[in-house]
Design a protein around this nucleic acid. Structure first.
Length: 324
DNA sequence: AACGCGACCTGCGAGC
DNA sequence: TGCTCGCAGGTCGCGT
């Protein structure tokens, strides 16, 4: 399910519930959800028990919880001035269907409950953090925190540190990251020999954009998904990136309205889905921009990268004669 | 470097 | 009713 806005909704919700609390027990209900933890479920659980959650950090679709007091941490992790320098984090990726839910123990287990974390008591707060995942493409695992290459914060956080989860170090900053560099993005985009949508989905070039927001951004920027990246003018690249940023910011605002309930979920996307999508899932329906202009564009679906791409043939035309 | 594909999974709706 | 098919918002790793 989740792309960047959904994951950010989870991050914002989660941080208020878990920051400062200690993980007192861990139950791996389905070991497949921790398969990226190479040392196995017992090691995963053993290293989490007793750990204190310092923050919730996000880059792109990756979410991680820097930890203090975990056995996996290197000794001497306390820096001068008494500041805690975490060296280990609990990583979460939601995949296609993952959820992180805060639940009271009285709440029945979800059908697809995969991992349960018990947290130290806190006033008026649920005691369990549950990882629920139908398709099991997501998962939890422990990862090291390493310095960022540029010395800037590794991701969006309450207390940003120049550290990044090792398993997320290969992805680029996302468009909502204040340290995102458009110049660098544009330079790397131009140097590639590929199509624009493929580039937008490449988490190593720009992170956080998935199939939905790629289509929405391309529609908004009036660009075709197969546009060769090495022909893009600077203004066009800026247009599509700004569009992605706007669409994701709107989705974030919409998702944010639904998480004041007593748990964190990723279904914040649903409200945005039905009301605000202009391209994704609209095969055969009128192009909203064309309709507003009295034109007759009908949204089409193409198979691209083994998934669906939705676009308007009128305002996002393919080139003629190979010229863009 | 780029790409296509399979793998990893469950579940839903459409069509027969 | 039950079967198969296609589809689903992600990522990783392999072969070419």
């Amino acid at each position: 399910m989740p792309e960047l806005p959904e994951v950010e909704v989870v991050r914002r919700g989660l941080v208020s519930w878990v920051r400062g609390r200690t993980i007192t027990a861990v139950e791996v209900v389905d070991p497949r959800s921790v398969r990226r933890h190479a040392l196995g479920p017992e090691d995963f659980a053993g290293n989490l028990e007793g750990a204190r959650v310092l923050d919730v950090v996000r880059r792109g679709k990756f979410l991680w919880l820097p930890l203090a007091d975990t056995p996996a941490a290197e000794p001497g992790a306390r820096a001068a001035g008494g500041t805690i320098q975490p060296s280990v984090a609990l990583m979460a990726h939601l995949g296609m269907s993952g959820q992180l839910l805060m639940q009271d123990s009285s709440v029945a287990d979800e059908k697809h409950l995969k991992v349960r974390l018990l947290l130290s008591p806190a006033d008026g707060m649920p005691e369990q953090l549950r990882f629920v995942d139908q398709r099991i493409f997501g998962g939890l695992f422990l990862t090291s925190l390493i310095p960022t290459a540029d010395g800037a914060p590794g991701g969006l956080a309450e207390t940003p540190l120049p550290l990044i989860a090792e398993e997320a170090a290969h992805i680029a900053r996302d468009p909502l990251d204040p340290y995102f560099s458009f110049d660098e993005f544009y330079r790397r985009l131009r140097s590639r020999k590929t199509g624009l949508k493929r580039a937008l989905l490449d988490q190593g070039l720009v992170s956080g954009i998935g199939n939905i927001y790629a289509d929405e951004a391309l529609w908004k920027a009036r660009l075709h998904f197969a546009r060769p990246t090495d022909t893009l003018r600077r203004a066009e690249a800026a247009r599509v990136l700004d569009a992605a940023r706007e669409v994701m910011t709107e989705a974030l605002a919409a998702g944010g309205t639904s998480f004041d309930s007593l748990y964190v979920n990723v279904n914040g996307a649903s409200g945005y889905f039905d009301r605000s999508l202009n391209a994704y899932g609209r095969e055969g329906r009128e192009c909203k921009r064309c309709a507003a202009a009295g034109l007759a564009g009908v949204m089409r679906r193409d198979q691209f990268m083994n998934r669906s791409s939705y676009s308007c043939p009128v305002c996002q035309p393919r080139p003629r004669n190979g010229r863009w």
